[in-house]
Amino acid sequence: MIVQGKARRFKQDNDINTDYIISGRYKFKIQNPEELAQYVMEDLDPDFKNRYQKGDFIVAGKNFGCGSSREQAPQAIKYAKMGAVIAKSFARIFYRNSFNIGLLLIECDTDPIKENDELVLDLEKGVLKDITQNIDIIIKPLPAVMAKLLEDGGIINHFKKHGGFKL
């Protein structure tokens, strides 16, 4: 699987929490994920919706997705049509939620990546290429369970396909 897109970074790099990804103001009353996606990252960057394109990557530091268990957070990113989230590390609940719904997360050193860099993600080779800066970044291999969930398109499809757990 090869995915290409531009890097989108934020003023705050570490500990981007799920309240910032989708505010409680919206997640409690809006059930339609496409509608929710309009408000993705709003409290961290009110202008975000005007500065990304479909297929772009969210790039961050450590502990991305900390805080509440809201599945609306990875859902909002997925329905905003982001290519993946690339971070140094992820909070546990967000990590599970993302693979459950089929949102790709990549762990690697994100320090070299700058806003607007053109990135190519090659999952088979385990490399993230920063074309703008002409550098290769090694990505952390996906745990087998996560790779399996991703292959099946999330836990719902996994359950439908196998009639239960087959991890």
Partner: peptide, 12 residues
């Protein structure tokens, strides 16, 4: 704590 879909899996 888990996400909603993980809890749905548990409920089933």
């Amino acid at each position: 704590g888990m996400g909603s879909t993980d809890v749905a899996v548990g409920i089933i």
